[in-house]
């Protein structure tokens, strides 16, 4: 990763960016850090085992430092999430500079990732897409009743930490439905199963870039990514839309459109 480190150093020294958000070795642990000085880059790591939602963390920093151009190290999934955040006005055009790194084949396979590389990579071998929908196929073989039982028993494990929401780079609404006092009374019971899970799946339908951080963050091992992948697949089949792919293409659920997307009988 020496070439990438050199590039980061050059960008900081030539003031192309004010800072670069990436992972730093911190007491032996890779943790998110904003590099502002070239000499700090000796502690930079491109860790594969520990992925943090860097693009989401960037929102907070960019909101406070609006005039600065900030660099960020991105993998394939993180670049897709940048596209979504720019498209949805959470980050500003021209104020973010992505520096791409490729994932190893091992990581791509582990993530079952269909695009384990960003559009530009400084160095290294680009891994082959590891598209694998066997997890969905397996569950779609079940009868409707069994499938319902499967999901209800999975959702039943939820301890309502909302970690899947907190870590999700596509979950960025300033006021989350969960925190709207008109919808959910503060101090009362959280929404019942499966309201939250299905609601989030719907919200994510045309934004989910399939990074899998939600499933990694779930302390109860609920296969939430499986649900979002299914919804993402529906959006692709119905509207031919892939989140995170093109910056100038709006998500099909973001606008009313010309009526061509409407299902027969809807709203008429």
């Amino acid at each position: 990763m020496d070439k990438t480190r050199e590039k980061m150093k050059r960008m900081l020294e030539e003031k192309e960016v004010s800072a670069i958000l990436a992972l730093r070795r911190n007491h032996g642990h890779p943790t998110p850090f904003l590099f502002t000085k070239a000499e700090e880059l000796k502690d930079w790591v491109a860790d594969e085992a520990n992925r943090y939602p860097l693009t989401k963390l960037l929102i907070k920093i960019a909101r406070k430092h609006q005039s600065d151009v900030i660099g960020i190290i991105v993998r394939g999934c993180e670049e897709r999430s940048l596209v979504e955040l720019l498209k949805n006005f959470q980050l500003r055009q021209g104020k973010v500079k992505a520096i791409g790194i490729a994932c190893s084949q091992e990581l791509a396979n582990r993530c079952r990732c269909d695009q384990p590389f960003p559009s530009q990579v400084e160095e290294g071998q680009v891994a082959k897409p590891a598209t694998d929908f066997s997890d969905l196929e397996e569950i779609e073989k079940l009868t409707e009743e069994d499938r319902f039982q499967y999901w209800m028993s999975q959702f039943g494990k939820c301890i309502k930490c909302y970690g899947c929401r907190n870590i999700c780079p596509a979950c960025f609404c300033p006021t989350c439905t969960l925190e709207d006092a008109n919808l959910i009374k503060p101090g009362g019971m959280p929404p019942e199963i499966p309201i939250f899970h299905l609601h989030k799946a719907y919200h994510m339908a045309d934004r989910c870039i399939d990074c899998g951080l939600c499933e990694e963050a779930c302390p109860m091992g609920i296969p939430v990514r499986r649900l979002y992948r299914r919804v993402k697949k529906s959006v692709k089949d119905l509207f031919g839309y892939i989140p995170g792919e093109k910056e100038d293409e709006k998500g099909p659920l973001e606008f009313l459109g010309d009526g061509s997307y409407e299902l027969p009988g809807a709203g008429k």
């Binding site: 800072a19 850090f33 904003l34 502002t36």
Partner: peptide, 8 residues
């Protein structure tokens, strides 16, 4: 501009 994450 300063952003870091502190282990605790």
């Amino acid at each position: 501009m300063n952003y870091e994450t502190v282990l605790t």
